[in-house]
């Protein structure tokens, strides 16, 4: 006898699935639309862009704009080419992320593992700096950097930004989840504070470091105000700061170079996107994995 049980396909669930994906796709399209618009405009001559704005036409100016964006400068010195700015941004992003991670880890290490008198107090002091972002203290910061003679230098660009309550906080939480016995075993194995940090804590924090790196790199890459303040030499411009320079030149007979600026904007988007894509799995692991 054949089984009476029928296998139902459940249409309502499938509909729900389609709906879910529909919403997600719409959202993604909505987010990517401006990027596509940028891309479209980089293919058109500037005059066309000036007259009609974004359109559906695809022109032939892509390679020309790319060449202009990456290898031509618009300043007096001719130093702020796209390549140069990309390099500067890269140094800022990497230095910013590395600095924040190293400093945050060391601060968290001190707070979690050393019996200091005011460890908790120190932590909360660090934590309250979240309420004092750079924008609030920008004038004194500028003055200090200027007195130190660090205007228009990479260290001036990076160092004032690398104190990080966020990284300290994340590493503190992470270190606290590492079992006490591991520390004790290391002590008995003769690992001093430095060895314990380097041999055990740092390798254990790999995923956490990767996660922090992504967040901090993107954050550093997107810095705008501070680089604008302290870089006046054109060869120190970062991408995010340099794009502005190009669209501003609406004077005399020259047109704003939309195509070139848009191309630079696209270039500026790429590295953070690539980093997120490549480190995605680390990122998720770092923030969710807790069993050590």
């Amino acid at each position: 006898m054949k089984s009476e049980i029928k296998t139902y396909t459940r249409p309502q669930i499938k509909l729900l699935l389609i709906f879910d994906h529909g919403v997600l796709i719409l959202g993604a399209a909505f987010m990517i639309l401006p990027v596509l618009m940028l891309l479209q405009m980089t293919t058109m001559p500037d005059l066309f862009n000036m007259k009609t704005g974004p359109s559906l036409a695809i022109g032939d100016q892509l390679d020309d704009n790319f060449r202009k964006a990456m290898f031509e400068a618009d300043g007096f010195s001719g130093a702020n080419t796209g390549v140069r700015m990309l390099w500067n941004s890269m140094i800022l992003g990497l230095g910013f992320a590395a600095g924040k991670i190293v400093l945050g880890m060391m601060a968290a290490y001190a707070i979690v593992y050393f019996r200091m008198r005011f460890a908790t107090f120190a932590f909360w002091i660090i934590f309250t700096t979240l309420l004092l972002p750079l924008e609030v203290r920008i004038l004194p910061s500028y003055e200090i950097v200027q007195h130190l003679g660090m205007l228009n230098t990479y260290q001036g660009l990076i160092i004032p930004l690398i104190a990080s309550a966020t990284a300290t906080f994340f590493f503190r939480q992470y270190f606290r989840s590492i079992p006490e016995e591991l520390i004790e075993a290391a002590r008995i194995d003769g690992a001093g504070p430095f060895k314990f940090f380097v041999d055990i804590l740092v390798p254990l924090s790999q995923t956490m470091i990767a996660a922090m790196f992504i967040i901090m790199f993107v954050y550093g890459w997107n810095q705008y105000l501070w680089p604008t303040m302290i870089t006046t030499d054109e060869d120190m411009f970062t991408l995010v700061r340099g794009i502005k320079q190009i669209t501003q030149s609406l004077e005399g007979t020259s047109l704003p170079e939309y195509g070139r600026a848009n191309m630079l904007a696209l270039v500026a988007i790429l590295p953070p996107v690539l980093i997120v894509i490549f480190f995605q799995s680390w990122f998720v692991k770092g923030l969710t994995e807790s069993d050590k």
Binding site: P179, E181, L182, E184, A185, A186, I188, D189, G190
Partner: peptide, 16 residues
């Protein structure tokens, strides 16, 4: 502890 010439085995092993 490192200089006491001892070795310890922990409950949760505490392996690195």
């Amino acid at each position: 502890p490192a200089d006491r010439d001892i070795a310890m085995v922990f409950q949760n092993y505490a392996l690195y």
